[in-house]
């Protein structure tokens, strides 16, 4: 099942399946290698509407919740 990254449980690994938002948004995500087919691990979500932190390759990315809602992922079982 594909769910927005925002709702993935912290600590889980998942594969990016679909990206919403415009082309500008896709380019922005791609600059940090967040692209369809890539595997990520969700580290944490900061409280009070704070950012979502994910691990990708050998680095991490901190992104606002709106962006995390545009990234649809499938949890790795």
């Amino acid at each position: 099942m594909e769910i927005p990254l925002l709702y993935l449980q912290a600590g889980k690994r998942a594969t990016i399946k679909k990206l919403d938002g415009g082309i500008g948004c896709h380019k922005k995500l791609a600059s940090l290698n967040l692209r369809i087919g890539k595997t990520i691990k969700k580290i944490t979500v900061l409280p009070f509407n704070g950012p979502v932190v994910v691990k990708i390759d050998n680095t991490s990315v901190s992104m606002g919740r709106g962006l995390a809602e545009c990234i649809f992922v499938q949890e790795e079982l």
Binding site: K28, L32, P51, V53, N58, T59, S60, V61, S62, M63, G64, R65, G66, L67
Partner: peptide
């Protein structure tokens, strides 16, 4: 304020 999007290097 646009959304945050930054790299957190190791």
């Amino acid at each position: 304020t646009p959304e945050t999007f930054i790299e957190i290097p190791p």
